[in-house]
Design a protein around this nucleic acid. Sequence first.
DNA 1: CTTGGCGGTGAACACGTGTTTATTCTAGTA
DNA 2: TACTAGAATAAACACGTGTTCACCGCCAAG
Lengths: 230, 230
Amino acid sequence: MFILVNVCSALSSDLTAQAKIRNAAIAHFAHDGFQKTNLRAIAATAGVSAALIIRHFGSKDNLRSVCDDHVLQILVRRARTSAGPVGVQDLSREYLADPEEYGLHVRYMVRAIEEDSSAATTFVNTLVEETEGLFRTGIADGSMRPSSDVRALAVLNVLISLATLTMAPALTRALGYEQMGLDVLQRVGLPMLELYTHGMYVDDTMLKAARTAWEAQQGDHFQRKDIHHG
Amino acid sequence: MFILVNVCSALSSDLTAQAKIRNAAIAHFAHDGFQKTNLRAIAATAGVSAALIIRHFGSKDNLRSVCDDHVLQILVRRARTSAGPVGVQDLSREYLADPEEYGLHVRYMVRAIEEDSSAATTFVNTLVEETEGLFRTGIADGSMRPSSDVRALAVLNVLISLATLTMAPALTRALGYEQMGLDVLQRVGLPMLELYTHGMYVDDTMLKAARTAWEAQQGDHFQRKDIHHG
DNA sequence: CTTGGCGGTGAACACGTGTTTATTCTAGTA
DNA sequence: TACTAGAATAAACACGTGTTCACCGCCAAG
C-alpha cells in the first residue's frame, strides 16, 4: 500500500513481467526491508503469481541481487554525473526533491546499508570516491582547507550524509517534528554548514590533546583485543 | 556462538532463570537483530527450554521490550554519569574500550535504532539532551563557538557519533581495513576533530548561499508533497 | 488439426518458528 | 509419607513463507 501505488506508473504499462516483478520488489524491499517482504506481496504488486517470481529469478535471494545491481547502476550513474558544488547533503536534498523515483532508490540503498549487503559496499565506495575527488579539487583550487587525511574526511562526510537518511526517523523525532521533510533537513543542514565553515570549538585544545594521546598510544594499540563484527 | 560465549560469565553463575534468559536474549538481539534470532537459540544460550521463555515473558515481543528497558536503563545511567570532556565520540571510544559489556549494550542499541524501536527513541533523546547541555555550558564558558541552533547541533553530533557505529562495517571497508578497531576509529576521529576545530571550507560562501536560498524558499516550502516514512 | 514450446498459475509441500498443552520434576509443608 | 504449588520440559500445534509440481492457455510451425 502507501507508496507502492506511486510506482504503479513504473509497472502498469507494457513492461515485461520480469521488469514488473523487479520494480515491485525494489519498492517492497525499500519500504519494508528484505526480510519482512514476502514473495506473495511482491507478486500481488506486480500483478503476477508468486510462482512466476521463482520461475524468472530462481530464488528470493537472486531476485534481491538483481534488484541490487539495478538500483546500484542507476544511483552510481546519477552520482557520477550530477557532481554538484557542495556534494555533501546532495543525497538528502535530492531524496526530498523527488520522492517518487530517486527517493525510492535511495531508500533501497539505505536498507541495503543497514542489512550490510554487498551492493551497499559498492555504493558507499563510489560515493567516497566521488567525494574524495571533489575534495581534492576543492583543496587544489583553494576553496577548501587542506586535510591531513582527505580519504578519511571523505568517508566521514559520506557517513554524515547517509546517517541523516538511515536515522531519519530518530532524527526527526529528536527535533520535535512529526515527519521528515524539507524543514527538518534545513534545521540540520544549517548547523552542518556552520560546522563545515568554522567548526564548533574556538581553539585546537581538543585536537592537540587527541593527537598527542593517539601518538603516545601507537605503541601498544596492537595488543588490544579486537572486536568481532557481524 | 562467537561473542555469545563471552557473556556466559554473566549468566553461568547462580542467576535467576529470568535474568539468564534476558541476558541471553540481549546478546542474541545485539548480535543478530530481533527478527533473525529465534527463541530456541536464546533458550539454548540460556540453558533452558523455549517454552520457559514464553512462560516467563509471555511472548517474544514482550521479551524484547523487557530487554529494551534493561539496556536502556544501564546505558542512560552511564551516559548521565560519565559526562566526558568531549562528549562526541565517547560512545565509540567506550565501545571499543570494553567490548564485552558496554559494547554489547551499545550494539543492542544500534540494532534498536536500525529497527526503529521505541527504546531507541528514548536513548537518542537522552543522548541529545546530554549533548545539548554539554554544548550550552561549553558555549557559556567560552570553549565552544555559539551556534544559531544548539539543539540541532546536538542532534547532528549524536547523529555523527551513532553513524560511526551503525555503519561501522561499510566505514571500515571504505578505509581498506578488515575489522573495526582502534586504528579505524582514530583514522576517522582525527578528521572529525579537525572538522570540529576549524571546519573544512576556507570561507562562508556555501553557508551564506544556503542561508539566502533557504530563506527565499520559506514562502513555498509548505506546498511540497511530504514524504512518508516507515 | 496437431504439436510443442513458453508464459503463467493454483495447490501443495517443506520447513522454520512462536506459542500451547499435557506432563514431569522439585521443593517446601503438614 | 503424602500433598501441593510452581518451575521446567518435550512434544505437538498453527501459521507464515520460500519453493516445487502438475497443469493450463496460447500461438507459431509442421
